[in-house]
Amino acid sequence: MRELLVIFFAGVLLNNFILSRFLGICPFIGVSKRIETAAGMGMAVIFVMAVASVITWAVQYYILVPLDLGYLQTIAFILVIAALVQLVEMVILKVSPTLYQALGIYLPLITTNCAVLGVAIINIRENYDIIQTAVNGIAGAAGFTLAIILFAGIRERLDFAPIPEALKGFPLALITAGLMSIAFLGFTGFKLAALFGL
């Protein structure tokens, strides 16, 4: 249990997907102009990353490893994720149209979010078991959500700031992300394992 807490906090704060692992930069900058849309994207990512982590883990250990097809990992994972996103979209539309309204437009974008494929590959490379995989998936996505919501908050304020013409938009977004990343570097000093008594 304590080990899972370590995985969770390490995923959210220490190895934040955006600010220290550089995964999922496109949606981070693309969908962060308003806090509400950023939060919607974050929720959709948490859901998809948690489910995708578990399913790709099962594909790896129940299909690819027994059949000795490890080299097909990349192809298999991306197809599973693409199909999963489609399926999730259809299920949500059927079960809860309100949720679909909220998440709808973000769901198809998630297929090409490298954080999803990234977390699936990291889970396998770290040799996590299925519970650790699920926790790591949720933690990675929670870190993504935290970063994108904070970032959207900063960007809303930047709308009113006098900015040099050449830095408007994308360049300034990158510099802002850099400053946030400095703040998150502060968490590197945390000794999580010791904190949870491991």
Binding site: F22, P164, A166, P171, L174, I175, A177, S181, I182
Partner: peptide, 25 residues
């Protein structure tokens, strides 16, 4: 060392794109 850490990547790329914007404009 900051240049090798994640912030260095974000800030350098941001300034580089800004510089290229200025030159092409």
């Amino acid at each position: 060392v900051m240049m090798l850490l994640p912030p260095g990547a974000f800030i350098t790329l941001g300034l580089l794109i800004g510089l290229i914007n200025t030159l092409t404009r």
